[in-house]
Design a protein around this nucleic acid. Structure first.
Length: 500
RNA sequence: GGCGGCAUAGCCAAGAGGUAAGGCAGCGGUCUGCAAAACCGUUAUUCUCCGGUUCGAAUCCGGAUGCCGCCUCCA
């Protein structure tokens, strides 16, 4: 089976074949370290985290490079506002970024280069562009000449004429063409600056990604990723600079993730609907956030609301409950968890219910890979996971009536299949018991009752039930229900849960 | 003004020529003293609207309407 992915260059899904054998080089545009990361950063991070995980899972050797922009106008301005150095500011927010990523379960890239660590690479690249006639220096600035580069607009599918027609920006009179962009910016007094052939200054935004991707992945590499907003001008400019400098193709597949809106509106500081990763994780499990981000295809816009994330939290709880019950069932010492259910499953029961459950479990992996091979269709993949969960639940139901070896083996196989695909999605990685205990503690903390008080009431109800005093028993059930506590009676006794 | 995207049940969402996955909510049932959980069944004769191509269209083409993004820093 071939992995197919959507290439922004062609606007179509294409078969993915790495440049050299089994090795995949992927460069993802990271953050500019001047503020806390928000939900949009979380989406991009999780999308590319899963792409990298899936490529590796499929047997590719992946080199994942993701930059951090640590010098830039926004950083300089913010540092000035706060009265700290640009370095202190960018280091602070880089640290916050790392904490957020760790909380989200996003794996660290193999290389995490920073612009200020590659000034010499950048200067050399600009010199090449100047010497080849693609760039010109004016008053300590260096601009890239879009007219001299044929093919400008190929990625964003726009011509220079179209772009000029829509220009809304005041044009820098030093530019020869309105669309020319800065490779090197001269430093005003007091601004951070590095020595260069054009005088002291700092790199433009786009050039760092060309310099660092070429350094770590070579002049031509497989995948370049980022948010859709980066297509123009950032990635268009990267392509122009890189191709002009090397004379070779730059990136083979451009992959862009869609945007996040909040209650239907674009996130923006002026609207006051900016949600940081920290804010969301203070109320929801990181895997619930991941589940939410995966619930829609990565290229589509994704709308966030409290209702939706809460729904994902409930779904995640449900899956963990199933996994926990399945593990309990399988833990029976008489049963070997290594039995493969597929072969023995067929025919052991005439019930189609059981057959369906077996196939839901046994088909999971194949269907999951099919979905992921089709441009990382995580929404579809999750549908298959839910099917497998249903299959496990069916068998759990049956095994409660009379455990049978094949049934328990299938349950075990289901758990390991879900765990396996979960590794690709970054889900179900927490120990089931600690997950459920954590969730209970979290919900309990929002309650007016303590666990001891609840246990007392349950005890009183047990006594009433023993006397078949249903009126008292039901009154206690009702009272607890009023506090959002659901009682579950079973032959082993009564347990309780807190409703979301 | 230019470029691009999206419109699928009460809500979220997959499907991209062969007769509508999955999740949430709802309803009926099994189980239960009553419940809860779980499971089973059910919930879009139809995919914004109007034309066209085709044996066949939610899927392709043309048009209309609505929403969104980019063109300026942005994941």
């Amino acid at each position: 089976m071939t992995l197919r992915l959507y290439n922004s260059f062609s606007g179509q899904k294409e078969d993915f074949k790495p440049l050299s054998g089994n090795h995949v080089g992927i460069y993802v545009c990271g953050i500019t370290a001047y503020d806390d990361c928000h939900l949009g950063h979380a989406r991009a991070a999780v999308v590319f985290d899963i792409i990298v995980r899936y490529l590796r899972h499929r047997g590719f050797k992946v080199t994942h490079v993701q930059n951090i922009t640590d010098i830039d106008d926004k950083i300089i301005n913010r540092a000035r506002e706060k009265g700290v150095s640009f370095k202190e500011l960018s280091e602070h927010y880089t640290g916050e970024f790392h904490r957020d990523m760790e909380a989200l379960g996003v794996a660290r890239p193999d290389v995490e280069p920073r612009a200020t660590g590659h000034i010499q690479d950048i200067i050399r690249l600009i010199e090449t562009l100047v010497s080849k006639g693609y760039a010109y220096a004016v008053e300590g600035n260096v601009f890239f000449s879009v007219e001299n580069f044929h093919g400008y607009g190929r990625l964003s599918h726009r011509s220079l004429e179209e772009m000029q027609a829509g220009a809304r920006v005041e044009i820098d009179p030093r530019k020869r063409h309105p669309m020319d962009f800065a490779l090197w910016k001269s430093g005003k007094p007091g601004e951070p600056a590095w020595e260069s052939p054009w005088g002291p200054g700092r790199p433009g935004w786009h050039i760092e990604c060309s310099a660092m991707s070429i350094r770590y992945l070579g002049e031509t590499f497989d995948i370049h990723g980022g948010g859709q907003d980066l297509i123009f001008p950032h990635h268009e400019n990267e392509v122009a600079q890189s191709v002009a400098a090397t004379g070779k193709p730059f990136v083979r597949y451009f992959v862009h993730n869609g945007f996040v809106t909040i209650n239907g509106e674009k996130m923006s500081k002026s609207l006051g609907n900016f949600l940081t990763i920290k804010e969301i994780l203070s109320g929801y499990h990181p895997e619930a956030l991941r589940l939410f981000l995966l619930s829609k295809h990565y290229r589509s816009p994704l709308d966030y609301s409290e209702d939706l994330i809460r729904e994902k939290q409930v779904s995640l709880d449900r899956i963990y409950v199933t996994l926990a019950e399945a593990l309990d069932a399988v833990a029976s010492p008489a049963i070997s968890p290594t039995i493969h259910p597929g072969a023995s499953a067929t025919g052991i029961s005439p019930s189609t219910e059981v057959e369906t459950a077996y196939s839901r479990i046994n088909n999971l992996k194949e269907l999951f890979y099919q979905a992921m091979d089709d441009d990382f269709n995580t929404a579809q993949a999750m549908g298959h996971v839910f099917d497998a969960v249903k299959g496990i639940n069916t068998l759990l139901q049956i095994s409660k009536k009379g455990p049978d070896q094949d049934c328990l083996a299938a349950i075990g196989a289901g758990v390991s299949a879900i765990r396996e695909v979960g590794q690709v999605l970054g889900l179900f990685s927490t120990d089931t018991k600690s997950y459920l205990e954590g969730r209970r503690a979290e919900k309990l903390s929002k309650l007016s009752l303590t666990a001891d008080q609840i246990r007392d009431l349950i005890h009183q109800r047990e006594e009433a039930r023993a006397k078949k005093d249903w009126a008292v028993a039901d009154a206690i059930r009702k009272k607890l229900a009023g506090a959002n506590i659901i009682l579950k009676d079973s032959p082993q006794g009564t347990t309780w849960e807190i409703k979301e």
